[in-house]
Nucleic acid binder design. Structure first.
Length: 596
DNA sequence: TCGGATGACTTCTCCGACTC
DNA sequence: CGAGTCGGAGAAGTCATCCG
């Protein structure tokens, strides 16, 4: 127990434990049955489906051979297959692709196939072998496959096996616990998503519910409103929705639309979010088994190294760190201090701070493990099945620069929620530009008590903030940009800012019908501008001076680390908004304090 | 809406060219 | 000569919203 196993040879890091797409249990049963050579599904697949669906050049023979191997263990590549471009013209070239009917094809794509594989694995129906990169069925998987009686609906036996499996999957326990123990027992996918997994980190993004409701409130027509309701959800929100859907299908949770209200410039706006959930009586009973209440022994949960992080260049490092912390915790049921964890990590050549360890432990709670958290330490109060921590190739085994920066900033954030550390990831990920805009403005409004909002859409700045409680109020027009290697503030973007400043001066609905400036408070007549990005490079300072010269308005550029430090300074009371006003908009980069 | 579907982006792997 | 490194291209892996 608790040994840290070393995997030799070529080992391919994969991701397990987080499932984005599937929710059809019958399809899951079919996928598990692929690994049981006595099942009807297996015989269909190898006998007729794959011969018909997969062409010779796409590897029909290799897939059939893979299914004929004994004992039956199937390699990842044969199960999942590959993608095609464009995806809409994909051909079937994977066993799991062939095992499930798609939405518009007789098979599913490689990505849904990967997700079905992850699902079967996360619920303990198949096991992974590192050495051969292949999967085989477990006793639980056999039980599920045997329980099939030919109906498309789940029968009681299958349901019982599935419930046992779901209750050993920590994130499902997390969702059940949130629904059972929070003050508000009726939660939306956003409320669940924002408290699921390694919150505030790449791969676990969650849109703030407030932001969504605000956006719905501000939508200009039904089309836009519908679009937001349909499309706006981040990864963790989606994970939460899927898990809740599984629990619903097993009778542990019920879906009920929830009315959500938000305050907007003194007015209350409310809307209904369809993906909201409440726990059922059966769910409460099941949760008793999870938590080991009454006569039940606590269910041992399935944890994997691969679920400790999903993204980023130092993913393996972070996975290893969290796995080690978990291994240390599970060695006893006595309280263990954070400093002793730090010390034990350093014996493994992982040099970390207490803050990082604390945040990791909160993360472990958020993936659904039960740990009592105290001021100076924590206490393990759960049961898990042992798991392998593979030794990754050396090349992958280092902290990334971003992780290092985060750690530095983390140490300075005593008041601002550490969830906002995600901004450091977002600021350097161009495809998460939209979320970066939202979160950056949210930091200022939610943590620093500025009024204002994210705007989005074309011909509007990314956001605005303003004050409403000073002798001399002011407003700021904000533009944000997520860029991989730093932002040089190109002329086009500088001109755009000049235009916004101009529009705000003239305030003519002829020039810009959206009249975005109306969101500023009425009594504001002092304005500034601000650019936010990861960090700035090139001629950005000249561009800022140019904007200022052209418009007569002062502004600044602020890197994301500094924005976080400013937020902390404001929230802690060390920096007043007046002081910020007087110091920050110096027509250059604003650097509030040097880190030592 | 639900249950995947999609293009995009990041990282890995391969392989010939080149260097020391 | 040969081991090591570089770098470009394509394959593999993983989203983060999208959407029929």
């Amino acid at each position: 127990m608790n040994k840290i196993e070393i995997i030799h040879g070529n080992y391919t890091p994969r991701t397990f434990g987080w499932i984005q797409d599937p929710s059809n249990f019958r399809s899951l049963c079919d996928v598990v049955a692929v690994f049981d050579c006595n099942s009807k599904k297996y015989k269909e697949l190898s006998g007729s489906v794959i011969p018909q669906l997969v062409s010779e050049e796409d590897g029909r023979k290799e897939l059939i051979n893979a299914l004929n191997k004994r004992p039956l263990a199937i390699a990842y590549s044969k199960l999942v297959g590959t993608s095609f471009f464009p995806r809409a013209s994909a051909r079937c070239n994977g066993i799991i692709q062939a095992a499930v009917k798609g939405q518009s094809r007789p098979f599913i794509g490689d990505w849904p196939a990967d997700n079905f594989l992850r699902w079967a694995h996360a619920l303990g129906f198949i096991r992974y072998d590192y050495e051969s990169d292949s999967f085989s069925i477990t006793p639980e998987g056999k039980r599920l496959s045997k329980a099939y009686a030919g109906n498309s609906d789940l029968n009681d036996k299958e349901k019982a096996v599935l419930i046992d499996a779901v209750l050993a999957y920590p994130p499902a326990c997390r969702i059940l616990n949130l629904l059972a123990h929070t003050d508000d027992t009726h939660l939306t996918k956003f409320e669940l998503g924002s408290r699921l997994g390694f919150v505030g980190e790449d791969g676990f993004t969650s849109l703030g519910q407030k932001t969504i409701v605000k956006a719905i409130a501000l939508a200009k027509d039904a089309y836009e409103r519908n679009n937001i309701i349909q499309n706006r959800e981040a990864s963790a929100d989606k994970y939460a929705r899927m898990i809740a859907k599984w629990l619903q299908k097993l009778g542990l949770v019920e879906q009920k639309p929830k009315k959500v209200a938000v305050d907007l410039a003194g007015e209350t706006f409310s809307c209904s979010i369809p993906q909201a959930y409440v726990i059922t009586n059966a769910g409460r009973i099941a949760l008793g088994r999870v938590n080991g209440r009454s006569r039940h022994k606590r269910i041992a949960k399935n944890v994997f190294y691969e679920m400790m992080a999903t993204k980023g260049s130092d993913r393996e490092y972070i996975r290893t760190r969290r796995s080690y912390i978990l291994k240390f915790l599970t060695r006893g049921s006595d309280k263990i201090s954070y400093s002793s964890i730090v010390q034990r990590l350093s014996c493994e050549k992982l040099n970390e701070t207490i803050q990082t360890v604390k945040d990791d432990i909160i993360g472990l709670c958020n993936i659904g493990l039960s740990i009592q958290i105290y001021e100076d330490g924590c206490k393990w109060s759960d049961r898990i099945n042992d798991f392998v921590v593979p030794q990754p190739p050396d090349a992958n085994f280092k902290k990334s620069q971003l992780t290092g920066i985060k750690e530095q900033i983390r140490a300075h954030l005593a008041n601002v929620s550490h969830d906002y550390l995600t901004l450091i990831d977002l600021a350097y990920d161009s495809r998460q530009n939209a979320l970066f805009e939202v979160k950056a403005v949210e930091l200022l409004t939610e943590e620093c008590n500025f009024c204002g909002q994210h705007m989005g859409g074309s011909r509007k700045p990314d956001g605005i903030i303003f004050t409403d409680s000073l002798d001399k109020n002011f407003g700021v027009i904000i533009d944000t940009k997520a860029y991989k290697d730093g932002y040089n503030l190109p002329i086009s973007q500088a001109d755009e800012m000049s235009r916004y400043i101009d529009e705000n001066k003239k305030r003519s609905d002829v020039i810009n019908p959206s009249q975005w400036w109306k969101k500023f408070g009425d009594d504001i007549d002092l304005f500034f501008f601000m650019f936010v990005s990861g960090h700035f490079i090139g001629n950005f300072a000249e561009q800022i001076k140019r904007i200022s010269n052209v418009t007569g308005i002062d502004g600044t550029a602020i890197g994301i680390q500094n924005l976080l430090l400013v937020a902390e300074a404001i929230k802690s009371g060390r920096l007043s908004k007046c002081c910020l006003r007087d110091k920050a908009f110096n027509n250059s980069e604003f650097i509030p304090l040097q880190l030592q």
